[in-house]
Design a protein around this nucleic acid. Structure first.
Length: 562
RNA sequence: CGGAGUGUAGCGCAGUCUGGUAGCGCACCUGGUUUGGGACCAGGGGGUCGAAGGUUCGAGUCCUUUCACUCCGACCA
């Protein structure tokens, strides 16, 4: 295609709102246009990249036996009520009414719709397994959209759903999808890692995320330096030994004035923070109720809120105000699991199991207990609720764990019957018995991938597209279109490359050389051929975008070499 | 949700304190020169100053309300 005919509004200036490199370059190079908070238009170049990514996704999924469909974007709320998610999904779900006052939602994900589709057409085990997917718009009313395409409200996602007769077959498909996803991200030229993950609002068990490694990633992932273990911080686990106090202090209440933080308590009583029970009180929200919960962790740990939330099966955890604390009978700075108000649920971190000689708040102003053994506590239960720290030991091999940042581009879940049960999606097995489908669900953030590719592949001049994602394979740059020989040679090379099957962009604009080069570097097409001054000796230049190294080649050899 | 900030030409901004004909750079249009690293000269087009209401002879500027957008945070007891 000719540059002069394409809408590619490049810009020298960085738009105000962009902070992330990918966002800046995608805007400046004319791939996307901002239309509102978390909403973007795709211009021709952006649409080409989007289509390339979709194509790779589709090819790999189809060859793995999945089938593409397209579901309605607007979903009747009744389906969401049946699954129980109409209330549970929270404010991210955009709800609205039609003229007849019926409730609808804009689909943030399509489990309900897909289950409904299959329920109506699949009745027998003979029709299974089945893997259906779509590449379609999603809408999530994010609390705070940011980072351009990375966290928009409207975005393009591939979502797939598989249906099986039993767990075993669902797991087979899960691993097939894991492999298929690896193929997709490898083809797109990404450096990624597969990690264990929390299942979040989708529900189900056994989920894995595909993380593109990048400093700007929003997720913290924990990886092992000596084995393959990797997990999102929300789900990461590690080895631990329960803390034991060397000093055998007898149990007693002690006066601890002005010691409201772990540091102060630890210093005042001369005990290691690891032996201090830090209490984080939260309100756990459920569908129709809420409860105050005390999460008890070691003084040197931090609460992992997702794990904590899962430990009490809550929808969400929220902070307590000063007033709420008081109403619950809790005293900030002096909370403890021993002799706590009865209505309060206590969850203790697993790391405390069998621990002895601990310190905790006495639920009484300016007092702490010392010499507590965990066995003294009643009506408590143990869960893993703290964030793994760098330097903790890997559960698999004992190696050191460390943090890195990742962009979540894919997530696969073993759902089981989480949706088929409530939606009564059943089939008849070989004994003629009704059974709910056993399901898996698989997502890829297609529009987010555009940003992820650039986050991982750019320099200080602009984008560097990977082979399969690039809007064009090669750009033909005519240095000066008023030079007839350059112009005619440019056109000829352009036609030749096209006939060889390349996607070619011809920069035939009436601009100066430097201007065109800046645009080339900003847009980031993998290779360019420059038809310029060297043509007088019968040469052209071939340049690679990633290293910007150029090779001078005689015209006839150039065509061969390509 | 909490905190901070910004809305003036397509983009980036000045003008607001101290009310008096709406400005600059980039981009755009016309003509000419230039043509290997975002050129130059000359001429030109483009604005409900986020919106509504108020004060005033007069409001981009002062007052009230409202909307939108951006950034930071959502830790700890």
């Amino acid at each position: 295609m000719r540059f002069s005919n394409l809408l590619i509004p490049t810009s020298k200036e960085t738009p105000n709102e962009a902070t992330l490199q990918s966002h800046i370059y995608l805007l400046r190079a004319g791939f996307i246009q901002s239309v509102g908070s978390g909403l973007y238009n795709y211009l021709p170049l952006g649409k080409m990249v989007l289509d390339n990514i979709s194509r790779v996704v589709k090819e790999e999924l189809d060859s793995a036996g999945a089938q593409e469909v397209s579901l309605g974007f607007v979903t009747p709320a009744s389906l969401w009520r049946e699954s129980g998610r109409f209330e549970k999904y929270g404010k991210e779900l955009l709800r609205f009414k039609d003229r007849k006052d019926n409730d609808f939602v804009l689909g943030p994900t399509h489990e309900e719709m897909m289950v409904n589709l299959v329920k109506q057409s699949v009745k027998s085990y003979k029709q299974l397994p089945l893997n259906l997917y779509q590449i379609n718009l999603k809408f999530r009313d994010e609390i705070r959209p940011r980072f351009g395409l990375m966290r928009g409200r409207e975005f393009l996602m591939k979502d797939g759903y598989s249906f099986h007769i039993d767990e075993e077959d669902m797991q087979r498909e899960f691993y097939l999808m894991q492999e298929t996803y690896s193929n997709i991200f490898t083809r797109l030229g990404l450096d990624f890692r597969i990690v264990d993950a929390d299942s979040g609002a989708i529900g189900g068990s056994g989920s894995k995320e595909f993380m593109v490694l990048a400093q700007s990633g929003e997720d913290t992932i924990v990886v092992c330096e000596s084995c393959e273990y990797g997990a999102n911080i929300e789900a990461a686990v590690c080895r631990y030994i329960p803390p034991q106090n060397e000093k055998k202090e007898p149990f007693k209440k002690v006066y601890t004035p002005n010691a409201t933080t772990i540091e102060e308590v630890s210093a005042f009583l001369d005990v290691d923070p690891v032996l201090c029970m830090k209490v984080v009180a939260k309100r756990a929200l459920y569908d129709e109720s809420s409860a105050v919960v005390m999460f008890v962790i070691r003084g040197n740990d931090t609460l992992q809120e997702i794990k904590a939330c899962n430990s009490v099966d809550a929808n969400e955890l929220v902070d307590l105000s000063e007033e709420e604390l008081e109403e619950s009978g809790l005293i900030a700075g002096y909370m403890g699991p021993l002799k706590a108000p009865e209505a309060i649920r206590v969850v203790i971190d697993k790391r405390f199991q069998d621990a002895t000689g601990l310190v905790c708040g006495a639920n009484e102003n300016e007092h702490h207990y010392i010499g507590i053994d965990i066995s003294m506590l009643e009506n408590v239960f143990f869960e893993d609720i703290v964030a793994v720290k760098e330097g903790d030991k890997c559960v698999c091999c004992g190696g050191n764990l460390y943090y890195t940042k990742g962009i979540e581009v894919g997530h696969i879940f073993q759902l089981g019957t989480r949706y088929s049960d409530p939606l009564k999606a059943e089939f008849l097995d070989e004994n003629g018995k009704s059974k709910p489908f056993v399901m898996g669900t698989y997502g890829i953030g297609v529009s987010r991938l555009i940003a992820a590719i650039i986050e991982q592949n750019h320099d200080d001049k602009g984008c560097i597209w990977t082979k399969e994602s690039a809007p064009f394979d090669i750009e033909v740059i005519i240095s000066n279109i008023k030079d007839e020989m350059q112009y005619e040679t440019g056109i000829k090379i352009y036609e030749q490359l096209k006939s060889k099957g390349f996607k070619v962009l011809l920069d035939d604009r009436k601009e100066r050389f430097g201007f065109k080069m800046k645009d080339y570097e900003l847009i980031g097409i993998p290779r360019a051929v420059i038809i310029g001054q060297k043509l007088e000796e019968g040469n052209v230049e071939l340049i690679d975008r990633d290293d910007l190294v150029s090779k001078t080649l005689p015209l006839d050899i150039f065509i061969e070499e390509i």
